[in-house]
């Protein structure tokens, strides 16, 4: 079985630490991180070119990010022919209803209020695996 990745886009070091910890507990997937929107964007472009994006099992996306917002990243993914099918879950501490609605419309697999729990992540992953 080829190794799968989870791409975590998170700028806050504490949140990064907490999310990594949960991911480590919930699955065996490797973790790739991006520390802001721009970095995530560049990473996704590279992966699109060398087709390594196929190994991304889940993108965990914070909404409030430096440079490029999570919502714009999500739109970019959905507008990209190759990337548009990527499973994306939002990880946020905001309770902005408009954001949430827009994200659901852009086809996210989940919208998680921080902190994420192991069970929640396991649930998402099993849904993704079940769908494949």
């Amino acid at each position: 079985m080829a190794p799968f990745y989870i791409l975590l886009v998170e700028d806050n070091p504490d949140d990064l630490f907490l999310a990594s910890r949960i991911i480590g507990k919930a699955c065996q997937h490797e973790l790739v991180t991006a520390r802001d929107g721009e970095e995530a964007d560049e990473l996704l472009r590279r992966m699109e070119q060398d087709d390594s994006y196929r190994y991304i099992r889940l993108v965990l996306l914070d909404l409030k990010l430096p440079k490029i917002s999570g919502l714009d990243l999500l739109r970019g993914i959905r507008d990209n022919v190759k990337l548009q099918g990527l499973p994306v879950a939002i990880l946020t501490s905001s309770d902005n209803e408009t954001d949430q609605e827009q994200c659901w419309q852009l086809g996210v697999v989940d919208y998680i209020y921080k902190p994420m729990t192991v069970d929640r992540l396991k649930g998402i992953l099993s849904r993704i695996e079940g769908a494949q």
């Binding site: 806050n12 504490d14 949140d15 209020y113 994420m116």
Partner: peptide, 10 residues
């Protein structure tokens, strides 16, 4: 909310 969520996480 963000720091409180962190606190909860820790």
């Amino acid at each position: 909310r963000a720091p409180v969520a962190r606190l909860e996480g820790f």
